[in-house]
Design a protein around this nucleic acid. Structure first.
Length: 584
RNA sequence: GGUGGCGUAGUUCAGUUGGUUAGAAUGCCGGCCUGUCACGCCGGAGGUCGCGAGUUCGAGUCUCGUCGUCACCGCCA
């Protein structure tokens, strides 16, 4: 037996007890005639003590100890003469009678403590050491708790957890696939799934009725703080349901997770049409922790001789509460902020609605106080507020205003981490026009059903057709999305046609699904949550890397094992692969 | 594919207008220390200033390139 207790469990009631502990040396404090050692495992820290009663043999071993040595210690629990209120085991200590080094440690490159001195790069390279730190391990414990909560909720609701293949067929739609060469089938490739989409629909045809899986998905696209090449989804599909059934079920799941894991009660989730989200929040994933809604000023601001506005397709603004006192420096700062290439606005017009009711703007030359008053009314600005106005082409300007709204929300501290405001964004457009290829793409995926009342528009105005598609958004983060699927072969064929597939192409790509639908496909709908994002949201983190045990960097590299890496000539030969040009 | 930030001791950082021998803290090593818990005190070692060119009498500092890393835009049905 390596240990009788963990390093987090001994208390005064154990005093006098003979125990064996094992763990890592957090720190040795050598006071000369006596020494203290903090012994750490994932459960906590227990203080070991050696003094004049300690054997020479133990003392000798003590001298060899360094940080992160793995040791086993035998001893007696005793009361401390000076207690430490900061740790749960702070009332006791272990008087060492036996000490064994199980495994020595090189000096670690950074300190294993909550406020480590290690930078991100270094901690990634030595991820196994970083994971010893409380702060990092706690995120993964939270992740495990959440996975457990999800399983228990969905299992209790009759969902069947089913695994689907990881080696599947590449499809041209959507993100780039990771491809895997097949040794046994020269010149042919598997792809890793971007999601188990088609398989879960087949499970519905199979009559599974309610399916879920916590599953890895893979997308070969450029990364961000909240995007990894491999990530985890809570993937679900249900039969004989309508949109409302799916929304209610997964609203229930989300609330259950909040309650179980964080003990937080969240309000019912509002439903917001996509068009409202775009027009009022400038985003399809609105952060509704604060108001500051976008408002259209095109009508009010046009035709007064200000050439920038007069030539603009759209003029819109937001009202920053209590910011009328902003200095020239602050407004200049905001102007520069919106002019950054990432935001792309040409400039920023501001109107200060002073406490005394007067109005001061950067365009006073063109607008009378009455004009500005009308703006204030539209933006619901009151004395003391600052109105910020952008103009230009409609869509880019709305996007920029949405970004500006979030930035002001940040500056005003309106985006608090512990506050959770989920909502459903619904009625997404079915199709998206791509300028480059001059064709429509499915905004969600090709199996998403149009709203029945919009089906008549499919031929005349495909861009206006709304889908039975929905996203769960929490605090401006897209947590998940899904749709009601098409289960009618004829409608599905029409969709493929609109998406530019010939019947032959459609058959080659999705023939087995269409074939399956011939044998009695139930109406079905589904949803998938980004599990990593959900965990990082619960943890109050901005990067999903912190909730993944071994994440990749933003170039998709694992800096710990230095992958991806070249493979040998023999491996390539076996896979019937030849490199076109030598890299590096 | 693009924009920007960062790269100096094991680590986190400072380094003035381009100017003598590149500093601090922490960690590490040695010594002292009987109640520490961020122990304390004394001493010591530790540097390819990411790499390569260039400008200059002289480059950690300026220029260009390159590599690494982070954030963002494009991209991610």
């Amino acid at each position: 037996m390596y240990r009788t207790h963990t390093c987090g469990e001994l208390r005064p009631e154990n005093i006098g007890k003979e125990v064996i502990l094992a763990g890592w040396v957090q720190r040795v404090r050598d006071l000369g005639a006596m020494s203290f050692i903090d012994l750490r495992d994932r459960y906590g820290i227990t203080q070991l003590v050696a003094d004049e009663n300690t054997s020479e043999e133990v003392k000798k071993t003590l001298e060899e100890l360094g940080r992160e040595f793995v040791i086993q210690v035998t001893g007696t629990v005793r009361e401390r003469s000076s207690r430490n209120k900061n740790i749960p085991t702070g009332d006791i200590e272990i008087e060492i009678s036996g000490l064994k080094i199980l495994s020595p440690s090189a000096v670690p490159p950074f300190t294993i403590q909550d406020d480590t001195d290690g930078g991100d790069d270094l901690r990634m390279k030595y991820r196994y050491l970083d994971l010893r730190r409380n702060a990092v391990r706690k995120n993964l414990e939270l992740r495990a708790q959440m996975a457990h909560a999800v399983r228990s909720f969905l299992t209790a609701n009759d969902f069947i957890e089913t695994e689907t293949p990881v080696l599947i067929k590449s499809t041209p739609e959507g993100a780039r696939d990771f491809v895997v060469p097949s040794r046994m089938n020269p010149g042919e490739f598997y792809a890793l799934p971007q999601s188990p989409q088609i398989f879960k629909q087949l499970l519905m045809v199979a009559g599974f009725d309610k399916y879920f899986q916590i599953v890895k998905c893979f997308r070969d696209e450029d990364l961000r703080a909240d995007r990894q090449p491999e990530f985890t989804q809570i993937d679900c599909e249900m039969s004989f349901v309508e949109q409302e059934d799916v929304l209610n079920t997964f609203e229930g799941l989300t609330k259950y997770a909040f309650k179980e894991v964080l003990n937080v009660e969240v309000d019912n989730f509002p439903r917001m049409p996509y068009t409202t989200a775009m027009e009022k929040y400038g985003s399809d994933k609105p952060d509704i922790r604060f108001e500051m809604l976008l408002n259209d000023l095109t009508e009010q601001a046009k035709g007064k001789g200000f050439v920038v506005f007069d030539s603009a397709e759209y003029i819109g603004g937001v009202c920053a509460k209590g910011c009328a006192g902003y200095s020239r420096k602050q407004t200049d700062e905001l102007t520069n902020w919106v002019k950054r290439p990432q935001i792309g606005a040409k400039g920023l017009v501001y109107v200060k609605y002073n406490e005394d009711g007067s109005l001061k703007s950067s365009v006073d030359k063109f607008y009378s106080p009455e004009d500005l008053k009308a703006w204030a009314e539209k933006l619901q600005a009151e004395p003391g507020d600052l109105m910020l106005i952008l103009s230009g082409e409609k869509q880019p300007t709305i996007n920029a205003l949405g970004e500006l709204r979030l930035e002001m929300g940040n500056r005003l501290g309106l985006r608090k981490k512990g506050t959770f405001k989920p909502l459903w964004v619904i009625d997404f457009p079915l199709l998206e026009w791509d300028e480059e290829t001059k064709r429509f793409f499915a905004m969600h995926h090709p199996f998403t059903s149009p709203k029945p009342e919009d089906i008549s528009l499919l031929d005349s105005e495909p861009g206006k057709v709304r889908a039975n598609a929905y996203d769960l958004v929490i605090n401006g983060v897209e947590i998940g999305g899904g749709s009601v699927r098409i289960f009618d072969s004829e409608l599905q064929a029409k969709m493929f046609d609109i998406l530019g597939f010939t019947p032959e192409q459609a058959k080659a790509q999705f023939g087995f699904l269409m074939n399956a639908f011939k044998y009695g496909a139930p109406p079905h709908a589904g949803i998938a949550f980004g599990f990593d994002r959900l965990v990082s949201l619960f943890a109050g983190l901005d990067s999903i890397r912190d909730v993944i045990a071994f994440p990749k960097n933003n170039a998709g590299r694992d800096v710990m094992n230095d992958s991806p890496a070249p493979v040998s000539k023999e491996q390539l030969d076996e896979l019937h692969l030849q490199l076109v040009k030598k890299i590096k």
